[in-house]
Design a binder for these strands. Structure first.
Lengths: 198, 198
DNA sequence: AGCAAAGTTGACGGCCTCCTCAACTTATGT
DNA sequence: ACATAAGTTGAGGAGGCCGTCAACTTTGCT
């Protein structure tokens, strides 16, 4: 890759991160090209689909989440680790509209790394008796969808109320709060279907 | 209003209900006109904005919710009434994509009638000690957003898993599950702001 | 029956975004 | 210095939806 091409690529990724953060994942790509100081043709040349640009823009966040997960697993109390992880990821979402949208529709499980990590965090918290026994990995999608949506709705008015909502949710996930659930959890395949569609 | 005009109006409202239910509130209005067997010009003549058509299409649901609320208040146990109301409204949302989207962005409080009703259901459940003491009317928005989003995500795969999610949420709303919340509730004004924007 | 008011029609201009491609510019190795 | 591959450019065609309006049709009153 030529030096100028590499530079333009970086400019595009940076611009994409900024524009996605401010205006969401659905912005017109012209806005990204303009902010990068590059023509729309170059953008399409480098990133033929929007998805590729999105992936490039949020590659860092994937690493960050992995680090958060490792740290969560390092905490002495498994329930605290679970809470820590969910809170930190939510914080990331609250700070970046684009990432919030992404988290709500790809949930980090297309990444085997993130999937595995979350799986361990959930299992550990459940087995230690902090997290309710009937909570499955797939149920994490509910948590993500909930938080994603309230962050989206409240971002313009308060950057912190989502913490209240999260606290309400967490209170329902403690083993001590558990009442029998009326429906079986989603299977791994069902969840995969859901994410495939979007 | 002329007889034919009245008939066309009804056709449009019926068509809108059907199309919104299947494809959401953002469909191209041509689709509604086509299903109604009427020209796009007539649609615009009768309903100058999309909002007016939406309101007309979901007027029935507003009545239904009011009835559900009354019934909830008639139940002997206030907590059961609360649960009943939330479940029934969610059921309505699960059956109609358009109404689900509407509920997620207008939350029935633009309607003073629905607002008042919900207010009483919440207050009653809280005062009876079933619903946690720190739960406010404004917190209902969290519940609505959560359920709306998971219904939206899962509708194509399962028409019932949302009940599992709702059960998890409800477990967090019981007085017995309450742990101190980290943030104050949204004020009535803040919530109004949020709904104004959308 | 005849007529004015009410209602309907759908082609069309406007707007936006997507994505392509032929012409042009730049980097790099020799 | 120059040739050539690599990269860039941006105007423009395609597609979708919106909302309008002048010409036409229907209703209902007298």
């Amino acid at each position: 890759m030529r030096r100028d091409a590499e530079l333009n690529r970086e400019r595009l990724v940076t611009a994409a991160r900024e524009v996605f953060a401010e205006r969401g994942l659905d912005v017109a790509l012209d806005a990204v090209a303009k902010r990068a100081g590059v023509s729309i043709g170059t953008l399409y040349n480098r990133f033929p689909t929007r998805g590729e640009l999105v992936r490039a823009a949020f590659a860092d966040n994937v690493d960050t989440v992995a680090r958060l997960g490792e740290h969560a697993l390092g905490l002495a109390d498994p329930w605290d680790g679970f809470v820590y992880f969910v809170e930190q990821v939510s914080q990331l979402q609250a700070a970046d509209r684009g990432y919030n949208e992404l988290a709500g529709s790809s949930s980090a499980e297309d990444l085997s790394r993130g999937y595995d990590l979350m799986s361990r965090i959930v299992a550990r918290a459940r087995e230690a008796g902090g997290l309710r026994a009937d909570f499955t990995l797939e149920d994490m999608a509910f948590v993500t969808w909930s938080i994603t949506r309230t962050i989206e709705a409240t971002a313009g008015t308060s950057t912190t109320v989502w913490r209240r909502h999260l606290a309400l949710i967490l209170d329902g996930l403690r083993a001590s709060a558990a009442h029998p659930l009326p429906e079986p959890a989603l299977s791994r395949e069902q969840l995969a279907d859901i994410y495939r569609d979007c």
